[in-house]
């Protein structure tokens, strides 16, 4: 089971560190990171393994969303199934 974490917002120091720390806190293993900075805007897509997630998915998603609000970033955490359902037959 994997989660897709996306982060969009103004570039600043420590974005990856903050998201990674939240993942580590809930036993989420980061598998892949794609990131770019365009015109001072930061965009990152992170694929993470959530089989050992130490809380409910909702709580994890809420934690990341709250972290995003605190840092003025938009952080979304979605189960991989929505992407595979929509884009594969």
């Amino acid at each position: 089971m994997k989660a897709v974490i996306t982060v969009i917002g103004k570039d600043q120091v420590g974005i990856i560190a903050d998201v990674s720390a939240a993942c580590a806190r809930f036993s989420v293993n980061i598998l892949e990171i794609t990131q770019s900075v365009l015109d001072a805007y930061f965009a990152m897509i992170m694929i993470a393994e959530i089989k050992d997630l130490s809380c409910s998915f909702s709580d994890f998603a809420d934690t990341l969303s709250a972290l995003g609000k605190e840092k003025n970033l938009e952080i979304r955490c979605m189960h991989e199934d929505i992407f595979s359902s929509m884009h594969t037959i």
């Binding site: 897709v4 794609t34 897509i45 992407f83 929509m86 884009h87």
Partner: peptide, 12 residues
């Protein structure tokens, strides 16, 4: 495997 374009399309 999920690709970046698909992820961004869904979020958009």
């Amino acid at each position: 495997m999920i690709n970046t374009a698909d992820i961004l399309e869904t979020i958009q």
